[in-house]
Nucleic acid binder design. Structure first.
Lengths: 162, 162
DNA sequence: TTTTTACCGGATATTATTTATCCGGATAAA
DNA sequence: TTTATCCGGATAAATAATATCCGGTAAAAA
């Protein structure tokens, strides 16, 4: 039961994009350099974020990525779902229908009690993530940063934004 | 973000063990036959359940597995943790300390905001599973079963219990 | 119009995890 | 002593996660 590290990278990338000047974008390679992660794979995650509607992309020279909505309107669940997909983590293989005492398929209209419990727990997980926005993350990160780091971040983004 | 199917098998196995007569056990191979899953791998999951304190085992001839506590005192989280381990699904790699604007390690006493959000969501997931017991599952399964299936289950367990 | 730069999508390779089997040893009943 | 079972480790195959590369497309700049 592991969450891929692409989710962590994507979340940090979104937090970085919040400090971007209006109407500007950051290249995938620049984001990878900022986070110190492999560029090619980071680019893959950015494409997934785009397909998930989290970020917008501009192609060609002076292209790059920026958030598609206000950071307060993008949740950690949006980011997670974009990278990992919407498929439930618990996969019910209908064991109750198997074996010498298996239930008849026609009788299995209601979901299996075990699957129902896991899906309910996953719903709680999702709702928790849905309540935390990228804006919340960015605020928390910047609140902990000393003034000189804040300046460094702003300077870096100004320098690398397209 | 997948939950291994060993968890599903283990949960069904525990539900089966609830209908076992007092002081009796079921062999790993018998459990596998009942659920119609590979015997060798099912045996592995039963060993994990034992290490996790969920079931007790008796070795030698007429050996087998039985629940270690009352079914109402075993939660789906106990089962999940026994199979998948207690490690959090989200692994923070301290990206905030990396790259050209990374934070100094000495300043990172509080957990990263992203990691904190995921761990909080996971806690909600765990607490949900902790509130569902194997007894709840068993009751729900048996409530849906027609009388002839209930008889078949009881007959099968009587026949295969040691 | 041509060149340059960057995203896009697919193919591919590598590594880790999951799924699955097997075997020798320990244990307890027959 | 024999038989049946769990136990733990080694091993192997299948699947998923991690990572790279390349040809294509789009858009700006020269």
């Amino acid at each position: 039961m592991q969450i891929s590290k692409g989710v962590e990278w994507a979340a940090h990338a979104c937090a970085l994009l919040t400090v971007l000047p209006e109407k500007k974008g950051l290249r995938a390679e620049a984001i990878a350099t900022y986070l110190d992660v492999p560029g090619a794979y980071m680019a893959k995650q950015m494409q997934a974020l785009r397909r998930g509607g989290v970020v917008a992309s501009v192609r060609g020279q002076r292209g790059g990525y920026c958030l598609r909505r206000a950071a307060s309107d993008i949740s950690l669940w949006d980011v997670t779902a974009a990278i990992e997909g919407h498929a439930p983590a618990f996969r019910c293989t209908e064991i109750r229908q198997q074996g010498p005492c298996g239930s008849d398929a026609s009788r299995c209209t209601r979901p299996c009690a075990i699957a129902a419990a896991f899906h309910s727990a996953e719903r709680a997980f999702r709702e928790h993530l849905s309540r935390t926005s990228i804006a919340d993350i960015a605020v928390s990160v910047l609140a902990d940063a000393p003034p000189e780091q804040m300046e460094a971040i702003l300077a870096w983004t100004q320098e690398n934004a397209h």
